[in-house]
Nucleic acid binder design. Structure first.
Lengths: 178, 178
DNA sequence: AGGACATTTCTGTGAATACTGAAATTACAG
DNA sequence: CTGTAATTTCAGTATTCACAGAAATGTCCT
């Protein structure tokens, strides 16, 4: 896997671009893509060569990917170097990333919003509009995170039938205005 | 609204940080936050002063926000300057942003994945592992986008009862392994 | 303990991005 | 038309971010 097929290149390059759009370092995303496509665990040297990036850069990128929890260190018999492999189950992978982003970004935002509301209590009268808007925002995040908690563990095979139900869902559940 | 209260500052600053984490320019996000909190439409001058950024910067940021579809230009009687206001319904706002990100990022990714699979048909035999992985990825994106199409129009008041149902959901719907 | 190899941390450099202020353009009133 | 205010575009500057290479640390073997 030292030279990439055109298709592998295409995938890895696109994944890198996707990364940047969602606040993930391009190289980090590319390394992840490479490991995702690789049938065997790769060592840092191989990754650096294949993607032509500096060895040190690979090191820190791998650390970050491990921090996200979608790449892990493994050992290969008869080779003392560290090897790395990506999680392969796409559903699980995205669940892990979403969990992590929730922890890093959504939860702190909720904390911030709650703090704002507490601080506003004192000066309630003079600036109700801000309070209103922040209140609405907090409600949104609270509801959607609860929602996410609900569906994050759905088995893969639940989603397809769910989609198939289409408009019927809300009626069957007897909720919403549907 | 030329000087900000501590709470408003806190919110706007945090929103700016959130932006950067999700690939949105900090200033763009801050301007959006400011408009979201503002009870009345603001002109570019006011925004520039309040956030102490250059007038030209405000101009391009507003253009981007309009591109996302969450800020719109309005006119105030007796004032020929352009004024801007943010969408206020948080649910609607996030729906619009998600729709846009789907269009800009997810749909092209799906296209890329499909192209990869077409290109792989020819060389099917020699590199099935890559095909397998890309196939799994395409399935994931196809299923989740269909899922999103499904729920994106759920009325706000459908989500709360949905969450309340908890584990029962899958059983009631008779799907999944739950 | 010593030496070879592997890995991580650190620092300077280069590239990309964001931002400002000036200039150009546009819109509008008289 | 002319003058004024508003807006956008542009070009230079600054800041941030990504990266390579060197140095330091760690690991394993003998």
């Amino acid at each position: 896997m030292n030279t990439l097929t055109p298709v592998q290149q295409k995938f890895i390059l696109h994944w890198g671009e996707m990364g940047t759009r969602w606040g993930i370092n391009r190289t980090v995303a590319q390394i992840h893509a490479l490991l995702y496509l690789s049938p065997k665990a790769l060592n840092a040297e191989e990754i650096a060569e294949t993607l032509t990036v500096a060895r040190s850069n690979v090191s820190s990128s791998l650390k970050e990917l491990q921090g996200w929890g979608i790449v892990k260190l493994v050992h290969v018999l008869g080779d003392k170097r560290d090897h790395f492999e990506s999680m392969k189950d796409v559903w699980e992978m995205f669940r892990v990333v979403l969990d992590e982003r929730k922890k890093r970004e959504i939860d702190p935002t909720l904390t911030m919003l709650r703090e704002c509301l507490i601080e506003l209590e004192d000066e309630k009268a003079k600036d109700t509009y801000t309070g209103e808007r922040i209140h609405a925002m907090r409600d949104f995040f609270e509801t959607t995170t609860a929602w996410y908690q609900q569906i994050r563990t759905w088995p893969t095979n639940a989603v397809v039938p769910f989609v198939k139900l289409g408009d019927k869902v809300l009626r069957v559940l007897g909720i919403g205005g549907g």
